[in-house]
Amino acid sequence: MSAQLAAYSTSTGEAFQFWILGTVAVIGALCTVFMKKAVHSALCLAGTMIILAVFYLANGAYFLGVVQIIVYTGAIMMLFLFVVMLVGVTAADSLRETIKGQRWLALLCGLGFGILLVAGIGNASLKEFNGLGQANANGNVEGLATLIFTKYVFAFEITGALLITATVGAMLLTHRERTERAKTQRELSEQRVREGKHVPPLPAPGVYARHNAVDIAGLLPDGTPSDLTVSKTLRERGQIRDVSAEALNDLRALEQRAEERLERTAIEPSTFKRPEEASK
């Protein structure tokens, strides 16, 4: 009787781990949804996945825990993060609907999925379970493979088909058909000349500045920063570092040192005497 009670009871350490890590996982999931910047959302999602891996390891599912960290967090999420950082996603992109009414459709699908999830959890029977000893009798990997490819093989194949469908759908939504011929470099140059806008190439970031980083606006010869030297994506994200005041102070100090040096060079020739004249 005591062995059965011990099997169904939760220790203090397990309860402490669940409430602490569960709270952090929920906060990370909420931050994934409500963060304004896509990079921050991806980092929060990666943290949530790591906590899920800790739950798997704590429950004896060592293979799932390792796969969760290596495949999902280490490979898929990092790939997604690098793509977001390289391509650049602004807040204006989330306001464009490629399909009319997709927001309401997504809200309806999410609500339906939530109802199904709550109903499934409410009807779940937790009175009897086999336990980790019986589930991992032949090994954790072997037990998981047996369940996936025998009892749950249909659900496994359906999940794979859904993932492939989602990938193809994402490609179709992001693909853009070119309806007109692409302009050549000569045509673009002639268009800039006719419009009179930025006939020469745009200045590079960090020109006349103390840095050459892409997130620092270049300074014009008069010391004012130029918005044309930084990417439009960085401007919309608010990720531009302003060093104009610091650069202006350095410029003033440099000009002052130059004036002092010029004054010394102008005075020295008049006061310079040859050794013969100095001996007289």
Score class of each variant (00 low, 15 high):
Leu228Trp: 15
Ile216His: 03
Ala182His: 07
Tyr208Asp: 14
Ala182Lys: 10
Asp222Tyr: 04
Ile216Val: 14
Val193Asn: 05
Ala161Trp: 05
Thr179Cys: 00
His198Gln: 06
Glu195Met: 09
Val230Arg: 10
Ala182Tyr: 09
His175Pro: 02
Leu262Gly: 04
Pro221Trp: 00
Glu263Ala: 13
Val207Ser: 00
Arg194Met: 03
Leu262Phe: 11
Lys183Thr: 13
Leu248Val: 08
Arg235Tyr: 06
Arg241Asn: 11
Leu228Val: 13
Thr165Ile: 10
Ala155Thr: 13
Lys151Ile: 06
Ser244Ala: 15
Phe156Trp: 15
Glu187Cys: 05
Thr167Asp: 07
Thr179Ala: 00
Ile240Tyr: 07
Glu195Tyr: 06
Gly206Thr: 04
Val153Thr: 08
Leu144Glu: 08
Ala217Arg: 10
Arg252Tyr: 11
Gly169Val: 14
Phe149Thr: 14
Ala161Cys: 10
Ala161Pro: 01
Leu162Glu: 05
Thr229His: 01
Leu202Gly: 01
Glu246Asp: 13
Lys197Ile: 08
Gln191Ala: 10
Thr174Gly: 12
Arg261Ala: 10
Phe156Asp: 10
Lys197Leu: 06
Thr174Ser: 08
Arg252Thr: 12
Glu187His: 13
Val207Lys: 00
Pro200Asp: 09
Thr146Phe: 04
Gly206Arg: 02
Thr179Lys: 05
Pro205Val: 09
Gly223His: 14
Thr146Met: 03
Glu246Gln: 13
